[in-house]
Design a protein around this nucleic acid. Structure first.
Lengths: 148, 148
DNA sequence: CCTTCTAGTCAATTAGATTGACCACATGGT
DNA sequence: ACCATGTGGTCAATCTAATTGACTAGAAGG
């Protein structure tokens, strides 16, 4: 694959990501969640995994702990997240989704699935599975930067 | 493909995009371009295509024309872009890359190709081509949002 | 007990983007 | 030819989200 094709592939990945983000955002708005940005969604995904502190979140989002702290403050204000004491460390606060937060997470997953389903209609047979398999191979774990 | 797998695929796409952006950013810094953000690169790509005005750029980036104008002002200051009169419309200004701008664009393409080449090493045979083919099918043209 | 490191927040500043106002010119109708 | 309306672009003010810096409370280890 020459440079031209490689650059083109990189662009396609970026454009696909933009479609995901915009699609999820639109799907969320359609479900009544119009006060959340994509960064919030990424935070939800991490918090839902459990055992998450503000510092963990900051690493996951690739930002500073202060930025993560502010983000969480907003989510707490809106009732999506609660801060609970960490039984093992009195300094730390474990983050947990409220019922509203879990409902919101499900809505985001539905919206994401819709975008992917739309892709499925454009592709023959098992291509979606192939896409999944290929990406799983190349992608390494790391921060999911909410802003470029 | 169920919701779980679909959500997972969406996440993989986002993570892949983050890898591209971070990789290009690192590659650019390694080549001495440490004063440019990803958004600048997206602007370069559009301007390089030719016949671009500020308003075109704003659409391409999915932002306001004011934001695009400010971005261009920065690029002009740094000597990457010049504004030229549009022979067909005295209001409009056509944007054109300077030699420095073109060199920068080539550097970005090299950096992007490096990222993709890294993926190629993780994949068997023609998978990279398959990835390209699949993405080209699902992706529709549209803004390449530099920020989520 | 003392030093050092880490989790988290508060405060001030900054970078980028947005909204609103505005000018110069284009376009189309009368 | 003229006038109304629409578009390309910039300037200015404001807002948002992030960063840097300083600090407190508690952990960890000698």
């Amino acid at each position: 694959m020459d440079d031209r094709a490689a650059t083109d592939l990189a662009m396609l990945v970026l454009r696909a990501a933009t479609e995901v983000v915009d699609g999820v955002q639109a799907g969320m708005a359609a479900r009544g969640y119009d006060d959340l940005r994509p960064a919030h969604g990424f935070a939800f995904a991490r918090i839902a995994a459990g055992d998450t502190t503000v510092v963990d979140l900051a690493e996951h989002l690739g930002t500073t702990k202060q930025a993560a702290s502010q983000l969480v403050a907003g989510l707490v204000e809106r009732g999506y997240v609660v801060r609970e004491p960490d039984p093992r460390d009195a300094r730390a606060r474990l983050l947990r989704l409220t019922d509203a937060g879990e409902a919101c997470t499900r809505a985001a997953e539905e919206a994401a699935a819709e975008v992917v389903a739309g892709w499925g209609e454009l592709l023959p047979g098992a291509s979606l599975g192939a896409l999944h398999a290929i990406l799983r191979r190349v992608v390494t774990p790391g921060p999911l930067r909410p802003a470029w």
